[in-house]
Design a protein around this nucleic acid. Structure first.
Lengths: 222, 222
DNA sequence: TCCGAATATTGACGCTTATCAATGACCTCG
DNA sequence: CGAGGTCATTGATAAGCGTCAATATTCGGA
């Protein structure tokens, strides 16, 4: 996992310098990790689990603006404040670095900043992809798209070979899904039911999803 | 304008080195500047006008995923391909730098990369703000939000003092607006009419907008 | 100045999705 | 084992927005 994460940019000596300041932490689902408009306390690499990034409108409406899977980086560099709220969507494990220490490391090792640049560019691409989904797709396509996204990121059997099946536990509640897709939980529920009755997915205990054919699911994404 | 642009990160000598490779270009509204999935030819700073960034869905549905105003930077660093299509929304003036030359400059002057990092972070914030708009707002709020955004970026009288009025030419057609907001042109038209009859804006020749009270317009943004 | 094309507005109607309400499944705690 | 809570599903209805169609406005060119 390290090869994809932040630390891949560093050599052995640098890794050691980094490791001095890091600490592994665990947080359970629902834990608030960083609040919108509050000073940043620390940076972190997601090691396990899923983080959801949200923004709220004054009147209480809330939008999930991003999901971070391992080995994504968490925290906005060079900003005094967080632009979003970060919350553990599932139980998560983080590799945290205190703010000051991390900024010192970045100043010292330019490869690190370069690496972070790459991650932010990827996040920008993903955000824009979701703008397309939010703006142009129907409810059915939105739900399928989210399931497809999650399947690609957290199916444990991923990486072994190119398979057309997937199986995973949803890290998001129906409420989270609705807030990500700009829908209501009722609509999300109905669309999941439809995918289930159409045989595109099967669902156990609301959270465990089996996808017999990823390409079929992809076909539902619009 | 330079103080906000890319070149603010450079000293006089570096500016000179940069200037050797730049050339000012003009393009009229509708000109395709860079295609999705095509190799990047050059980078550019927007000097005048507005660029729209779009993505398309296979079935032809199209989403505007970002607008770039002067003095934004145009072009995706470190990516082999563009992730989006860039098109001149109005007549534009660019300060272009060929790809190879610019990448050499970035390698040579780390402040330049740092500066670009800052811009990308801003773009990410903006993309996420629009995700909130796309996911949570009503058609009326979406249209008001876009007008408010544009007023803040291209009213020529901006920067003088904190005024509550604005006046500008819309750089986008109704089709562009609809594609940005995930609506149809008919819905956009109806909402603009509503803002007009409610006295929030006045419109001349479809394109010229006057906003007597920006705070009132903001109140319509949700 | 007038004509035609492109762009925008307005209206009638229907579909998609939100809203409101009831029911069902699962979990924890007694 | 049952009560109450949370979370998800299902149904009936309504609102918002899309679709289709007609009309109006703007703009460029003769």
């Amino acid at each position: 996992m390290r090869h994809k994460g932040l630390c891949g940019a560093l050599d052995a000596r640098q890794l050691l310098a980094m490791a001095k300041h890091t600490r592994m932490t665990r947080h359970e689902a629902g834990k608030l990790l960083a609040g919108e408009e509050t000073p940043i306390q620390s940076y972190a690499n997601v090691m396990r689990g899923v983080i959801k990034l949200t923004k709220v409108l004054e009147n209480g409406r809330q939008q999930v603006v991003g999901l971070q899977f391992a080995p994504d980086f968490l925290g906005r560099l060079f900003g005094r404040d967080n632009a979003v709220t970060a919350e553990a969507a599932s139980d998560v494990e983080l590799c945290e670095v205190p703010r000051a220490a991390f900024e010192r490391l970045v100043a010292e090792y330019p490869q690190l900043e370069h690496r972070l640049f790459g991650q932010i560019l990827r996040e920008l691409d993903e955000a824009r992809d979701w703008m397309v989904t939010l703006g142009q797709k129907t409810a059915a396509e939105k739900v399928a798209s989210l399931l497809y996204l999650i399947a690609g990121h957290i199916d444990p059997s991923t990486g072994t070979e190119a398979r057309d099946t997937a199986e995973f536990d949803l890290p998001l509640s129906r409420i989270d899904i609705a807030e990500f897709l700009g829908l209501t939980i009722e609509t999300v529920s109905r669309q999941i039911t439809k995918l289930r009755t159409d045989g595109v997915i099967s669902v156990i205990a609301n959270r465990h999803i089996t996808v017999p054919s990823l390409s079929r699911l992809k076909g539902r994404c619009g």
